[in-house]
Structure formats: C-alpha cells, structure tokens
Amino acid sequence: MPTVEFEGKTMDLDEDGFLQNPGLWSETVAQYFADQEGLGRLTDEHWKVVNMIRNYYLQFGVAPMIRKVVKDTGFELKYIYTLFPSGPAKGACKIAGLPKPTGCV
C-alpha cells in the first residue's frame, strides 16, 4: 500500500490514490492531490470550489449535486471543468478529500 508523509504524519493511500482515512485531510493534502491531478498550485478559485464541496460534505455527509456547486460558487459549469479538468464529481471531490466515487450504473 502506498503511503505519503505530510507534516510529520504518515498517511495510507488506496490503489487509486485516495486517503484511506479521510479524517486526515488537510490543505497540504489537497495541494498534494492537486499536483497528482496535474493542476499545479491551487488558486483562490480552486479553493472556493474545494471549500464549498468540503463544507457541504462535512455538513450533510454526501457530495453536493453539481447544480448546487454551480449555484453556490457562482462559476459556470464549463469554468469549473476548466478549473478541474476531470470534473467536479471526480477531480474536485478527490482534492476536497471526499470518498471515492464508484459504480457504473
């Protein structure tokens, strides 16, 4: 199992690079995931989306619907896809430390 080290803490990742224990998420971890996704340094606009998703998840226990993300951040859907090229449901959720999305049906 791959591991990464942040701020003196060792964290386990699963085979797809998600945190085994999502409770260990921090902003440093988010930046690490962003690098993995090839996004480079996260901008304020990235953070606006990431924080919105993260807060919604902490409050309700589920990822927000994409319409909600668009409304709350005020960004166009296309723009969110420019910020997170693999999409709000995949890339942004990963960076925000949400559970791994699964399923094909």
Partner: peptide, 16 residues
Amino acid sequence: GFGGYTSIPGVASGIL
C-alpha cells in the same frame, strides 16, 4: 470486484 476509480483530466465522461 467492487469499486475502482479513474480520472484523466479533460475526459469527464467515457471512461469506466
């Protein structure tokens, strides 16, 4: 098996 996840930037739909 269950689970599995792939994302590549720029391809938001079409990969399973």
